[in-house]
Amino acid sequence: MPLGTAIHNIEITHGRGGQLARAVGAVAKLIAKEGKLATLRLPSGEVLLVSQNCLATVGQVGNVGVNQKSLGTTGSKCWLGERPVLRGVVMNPMDQPNGGGEGKAPIGRKKNPQPLGVILRLEELGKGKKYSDSFILCRCK
């Protein structure tokens, strides 16, 4: 493939199937080729190294204007499976730190009931390392 080619449905490892740039209107660019590796710029702006043996489809994914269409009513959003948006202030205190209070109280509790518990929970979940992290050259846009 020549440099600057627009591609989508890209494999990260050979024989695993397309995993990158598969969303509506997504397209990645082939920036460079060195040895057995190719450099791609993904739709997110990330620059990634991929083996030249990996398969990809030339062109851009179709149905680009799907996000431009106005759904109109809440009912039509509901039919598509989109959940309603609910503000934190109107929730219960057990569901959200800003919830609770009498009437139209701005914030139910003055401070988070368990700041340490929340921090511990986030650390417990953590963010695992992926095998593809080593191929990322630049995370910037």
Rank of each mutant, 00 (worst) to 15 (best):
L40M: 02
L40S: 01
R41Q: 14
R41Y: 00
L42T: 06
L42V: 03
P43W: 11
P43I: 04
S44L: 05
S44D: 15
G45I: 06
G45N: 09
G45V: 08
E46M: 15
E46A: 09
L48F: 15
L49W: 05
L49T: 02
V50P: 00
V50L: 11
S51A: 11
S51K: 12
N53I: 04
C54S: 09
C54A: 08
C54K: 03
L55R: 15
A56I: 01
V58P: 04
G59I: 02
G59V: 03
G59M: 01
G59R: 08
Q60W: 00
V61P: 00
G62R: 12
G62I: 01
N63Q: 10
V64G: 01
G65C: 06
V66R: 13
V66G: 00
N67W: 09
N67K: 14
K69V: 15
K69L: 10
S70P: 07
S70R: 15
G72W: 05
T73K: 14
T74P: 14
G75L: 04
G75V: 05
S76P: 00
K77H: 08
W79Q: 13
G81T: 03
E82T: 01
E82S: 03
R83N: 06
R83P: 02
P84I: 11
V85Q: 09
V85D: 08
L86H: 08
L86T: 11
L86A: 02
R87M: 04
R87L: 13
G88Q: 14
G88V: 02
V89R: 14
V90Q: 05
N92L: 14
P93M: 08
M94D: 15
M94C: 08
M94F: 09
M94Y: 08
D95I: 01
Q96S: 13
Q96F: 10
Q96M: 07
P97Q: 02
P97N: 05
N98S: 11
N98A: 12
G99V: 05
G99C: 10
G99I: 02
G100D: 06
G101H: 07
E102M: 11
A105Y: 04
P106D: 12
I107T: 07
G108W: 02
G108H: 06
R109W: 06
K110E: 15
K110D: 12
K111P: 00
K111D: 10
K111I: 02
N112D: 14
P113V: 13
Q114W: 07
Q114V: 00
Q114F: 10
P115M: 09
L116A: 13
L116N: 05
V118L: 14
V118D: 11
